[in-house]
Amino acid sequence: MIEIEFFQTVLLVVGLLIAVTILLCIYRAVVGPGVFNVVAAVNVIGTKTIVLLVLIGYYFERPMFFDIALLYAMLNFIGTLVFAKYLERGDVCSR
């Protein structure tokens, strides 16, 4: 039996590394020339947040976080689609 502390440390390190990648993406989301770079960076940050949520769920042993991750994936996807449509046509409701 492998001790659980080892995996706790691994999960903590992986979560911190993913947080560092999110910090790198925030540079592009703040500076990035043009609105498209910003939207792409925000979409990437959302994707990385999904993994971070699952990791948090394992680190604190709360299965509730997996449902939040699923919902966050769907909201991130819909948000990006709506933003792309708005940037393309100027409004969201038209077909």
Partner: peptide, 24 residues
């Protein structure tokens, strides 16, 4: 649940990329 998450990301991530590309 986690498998659903992987499947959803495999479908949704290329689609979002494509939507942004087309809009740009």
């Amino acid at each position: 649940k986690l498998l659903f998450l992987i499947l959803f990301i495999f479908i949704s991530n290329p689609t979002a990329t494509y939507a942004l590309m087309k809009a740009a």
